[in-house]
Design a protein around this nucleic acid. Structure first.
Lengths: 129, 129
DNA sequence: ATTCTTGCAAACTATTTGCAGAACA
DNA sequence: TGTTCTGCAAATAGTTTGCAAGAAT
């Protein structure tokens, strides 16, 4: 019934890139990096494997300002991202304050099954000079 | 030097749709509605006028889960949206709590020039039955 | 009259999908 | 061996752009 995903060279390669990356990267960027490293992996395969990883909750995805999907290997649990708009460095932050606020506000308006997305953008220390 | 945007039928038509809408709508949806009303406006013109309105801060835009841009006539000032995932009804909410939290957290990590995006999704009272 | 706007078609970007052959278990 | 996976090319979807014709001031 439940088949285990196969352990292919391409899947490992995509995973390896994600391990090495610090911030978020788009599927296309990941594909480019693979090419630079001499790993031949089709672009569609990159997309498919990223999707597999997202489904397995091994990778987090968010949509960038320009609408493209960005991926990052990411710790479990609900949290938000603080992203440097210059170098892309990312810090994961938790926000019980925000969670509570969002639930309360939504509840006051009669909404249920609340979800929320929150991203913080700024310029990090190194890029600030 | 600074030229005023011209007051064209098409621009008025797009504005009128936005006035009538309650929630967010995509450019394509707005184009469809115009067609239903018998107003002939090219799709690209809809896109261009929406962009003009966004630049003029008369309209707010946000990116939906599927990556498409959604537009809505929207009050001034910084605020967030509480969107019903079923009917699309939208409530604008303010969150001084969140603003402060975001600034503080970002500051603690050495980030400057903070911006953030926050959207809350849920099921509204009417759709909850 | 002059300059901004529109409409259409073509171009683009990001992403998905069909399918035949290759690779894993 | 029997599936699952991959690569390529073609298909989608949303959005943008070039350009000649049309409208606003």
């Amino acid at each position: 019934m439940v088949e285990t995903p196969r352990n292919t060279r391409q899947r490992r390669a995509v995973g390896a890139i994600l391990d090495d990356l610090d911030g978020f990267a788009s599927a296309q960027e990941i594909h480019d990096i693979l090419e630079q490293r001499g790993e031949k992996v089709g672009l569609s395969t990159v997309y498919r494997n990223l999707q597999v990883l997202v489904d397995a909750a091994e990778v987090d995805s968010l949509r960038g300002d320009d609408g493209e999907l960005l991926y990052r290997r990411c710790s479990a649990g609900h949290h938000h991202h603080l992203v440097c708009r210059s170098c892309g460095r990312t810090v994961e932050v938790e926000g019980p304050t925000v969670e509570r606020w969002a639930d309360r506000v939504a509840g006051e308006h009669g909404f249920r099954d609340i979800e929320h997305t929150l991203e913080i953008f700024g310029t990090c220390e190194q890029c600030g000079r």
